[in-house]
Amino acid sequence: MATLLTLKRRIKTAKNVSKTTKAMQMISASKLKKAQDAATSSKPYVEKLDVLSKNLAQKIDSDNLHDYMKTPNVNSKLVIVISPDKGLSGGLVTNLIKEVIHQGSQAKTYYITIGKKAEIAVSLLNKEIVASFPFGSTIPGFETVYPIAKIINEYFLDKKVSEVNIISTKFANVFTQIPHATKLLPVKLDTETKDNNAVTLFEPSVGDLLPDLLQHYLEMVIYQSFLESYASEQAARMIAMKNATDNALGIISELQLEYNKTRQEKITNELLDIGGGSQIAYEQ
């Protein structure tokens, strides 16, 4: 019977699919552990750096401001989008691109894309991409940050753009990854809490310290986004592949049931045929 054979084939296909998705799930799970460690371990550092930069910014006079703190008077933006290179990660990329569209404005916007998915999506939106980097399939090293920081400096310090934003996926936990836009530059000053009475010693001098600190701050924030994007990618893929495996197993059991029923029906029919045939032979 033709249906029996087709059912058998479909079961085999579903089994193969489930094997592949199971393997991908395992790979992501093992990568996730490392990625999660990397992302969470550098978090306190970045947060402290953030506090330090903002504290320091409060303690300096307005004429000592570094260029990173001033807003150039031009109506354009630079946006950095970080996505994975590969798909099969559930709604991760879609949600990220939605955020990119949501953040789009009337102002002229330049894009730096990291990851193939971001590159494809942004070019489909007919936006101007000034640079595109691959994301890679391992934990990104710190050196990946330098070329990006260099381009940011080129655009921001030469006053081609008035702000720099970064759109990436924040790693909340294994089940939730939130696309998020962070304002990178200009570094916002918290003038409300400005404390003029505190005397702070700067060694060697504010002018020497501030550029170094802010440059480091910039690099660290970008790097942290990289790490969180990577962790999010692995988590999203693991969950997506787990769902795919579960679905495949569900389909397999359904098909198996269908197969058994059909097989049983076929046997019953054959028995009826034999029974009917012998009845006729007996009567004759």
Binding site: T200, F202, P204, L209, D212
Partner: peptide, 19 residues
């Protein structure tokens, strides 16, 4: 060790920022 040489910090130190 700082860029300006080695320093020691004791309680009650003035606010300081250095590399």
């Amino acid at each position: 060790p700082t860029v300006n040489g080695e320093i020691s910090i004791l309680p009650g130190h003035i606010d300081l920022f250095t590399k």
